[in-house]
């Protein structure tokens, strides 16, 4: 379970994240919504302790990102934005590498790699170097590395960005299947994704949390049933037809 309390981050004068607090329980899939530059990625980077917060704290299963960042990281599987990977490694090498750094035993490594390769359908490209892969495979490889140690927490930064509709569907199915016993946070700006996968949604804009509730709740706010309208209304603060906040 993740508890975020008054987490803030400023870059110089700009406040990228401003005192955000929320909780994610096991079995929940939290959709992180917001326009570009709202602070979604920054929040996620702070929870994974890649960058340190300017204020506030977050705990992952009781471990604080400030005092025990390594313990926190052990519990998290993280898929960074744009899925950066070591291009000169093969998929197999890369997954073994992350498994090893995750501290898995030799036997466990092989099993874990086999498992995630199957889960993410990477069998065909297992021994290809990553630079030769298509975007979809790259995403899936990045997903595979996040899942390799069967983490309790999964943080995915725009997992479906730039995929074709079929690939998007596959990824969503995968996330859903994983969600049962995990906390999942995923950021996106594709609203139908929230509807499709998330149990809860948080909308942030300019570093501030503007909405926190069930995804269905969000839809109900629009008389027309259009999440887009609700999103626009919340993030811009303008009156949108058919939306009552």
């Amino acid at each position: 379970m993740i508890r975020v309390t008054e987490l803030s981050k400023s870059f110089g004068e700009i406040k990228a994240v401003d005192k955000i607090s929320f909780e994610v329980k096991e079995g929940e899939v939290l959709g992180f919504l917001g326009p570009n530059g709202a602070g979604k990625s920054t929040t996620m980077k702070m929870i994974t302790s890649f960058i340190s917060p300017s204020g506030g704290d977050a705990t992952v299963f009781g471990k604080s990102i400030l005092s025990e960042p390594i313990e926190v990281r052990k519990k998290i599987g993280y898929m960074p934005e744009n899925a950066p990977l070591y291009d000169d490694m093969t998929v197999d090498e890369f997954l073994h590498y992350t498994a090893q750094l995750r501290g898995l035993e030799k036997k466990g490594q092989v099993k874990a790699v086999e498992k995630v390769i199957e889960m993410c359908a990477l069998k065909d490209v297992q021994f290809q170097t990553i630079e030769t892969l298509s975007k979809g495979y790259k995403r899936r490889t990045s997903m595979a590395q996040a899942l390799i140690h069967d983490p309790q927490v999964l943080i995915l930064d725009e997992p479906t960005d730039g995929l074709d509709p079929n690939q998007k569907h596959d990824v969503r199915t995968l996330i859903k299947s994983l969600a049962k016993d995990k906390c999942v946070i995923l950021s996106t700006h594709i609203l139908e994704e929230v509807e499709a996968v998330c149990t809860r949604a948080i909308i942030i804009s300019s570093g501030k949390k503007l909405f926190d509730g069930e995804a269905s709740e969000l839809k109900e706010k629009s008389s027309l049933g259009r999440i887009d309208d609700v999103f626009r209304a919340i993030t811009t603060g303008q009156e949108v037809q058919g939306v009552s906040l």
């Binding site: 890649f50 390594i70 313990e71 990281r73 052990k74 960074p80 744009n82 950066p84 990977l85 750094l101």
Partner: peptide, 12 residues
């Protein structure tokens, strides 16, 4: 390439 984000979010 951004892989630093990968590396430094591993327990390292």
């Amino acid at each position: 390439s951004g892989t630093i984000e990968l590396l430094l979010t591993l327990p390292v």
